[in-house]
Amino acid sequence: MKITIGAVVEGGSSLQYRTGSWRLERPILDHDACKDCGRCEEVCPDSAVHWEEAGFRIDYDYCKGCGLCAYECPEEAIQMIPEEK
């Protein structure tokens, strides 16, 4: 790929970089326990939780497994389990 003048980069291009491989623990969202409050989406530093028609979904391509969503969930609907490599 050719370099750009002044090293200018397209905004949003980090989506090409999958940080999910950093993860040591995987958050598992229990949709039955989830009350759709959106706290998990709100506290994710990696913008890796998305609202979809069926409810909230964790994007494992980018989730680094920090565990903030699980700790902050008021319904305790997210469990962290060791990531299997």
Partner: peptide
Amino acid sequence: HPKTWGSYAEEDVLMEF
């Protein structure tokens, strides 16, 4: 057209810049 200007670069491209 949001662009990011002032990136961090490494040895694979720095010499070309």
